[in-house]
């Protein structure tokens, strides 16, 4: 699923990565637990989370995750956006709850990891 499709399905807002909207994810994982995210082995993972801090971006960086959706209007700081830009990570902000976000993406054909 392409980033631009994710944005459309979620009626969401792109925070950074304007030039990479044709990037495609193959699977998604929703978690606020970074310890859990760090155990993933898949490539082209979309992370859906309600945790918005610097370690969310660091975890994506270390796990080679290139696209993160923040559900439920979580406040993403300028420092987070800067760090994401440095590491080619696309950030998307969405007003829907985690449940609805996941449901919409799953319903659009995005596969789960487990």
């Amino acid at each position: 699923m392409l980033v631009k499709e994710i944005i459309e399905v979620l009626d969401a807002r792109l925070l950074c990565g304007e030039e990479r909207q044709d990037y495609g994810v193959e699977v998604a994982f929703a978690s606020d637990l970074m310890s859990d995210v760090l155990t993933l082995k898949d490539d082209h993972v979309l992370l859906i989370t309600g945790l918005a801090n610097m370690q969310t971006i660091r975890t994506a960086e270390m796990s080679d995750i290139h696209c993160v959706v923040f559900a439920r209007n979580k406040k993403v700081s300028p420092e987070m956006i800067e760090l994401a830009r440095e590491n080619d990570i696309i950030l998307i902000e969405c007003r829907y709850s985690m449940f609805k976000t996941c449901g919409l993406l799953y319903g659009s054909g995005l596969k789960a990891i487990y």
Partner: peptide, 15 residues
């Protein structure tokens, strides 16, 4: 609150 503390780190390091 920072998203850690599940007790998975050391075993993940081992893996």
């Amino acid at each position: 609150e920072m998203g850690f503390g599940a007790g998975m780190g050391l075993s993940n390091m081992k893996k």
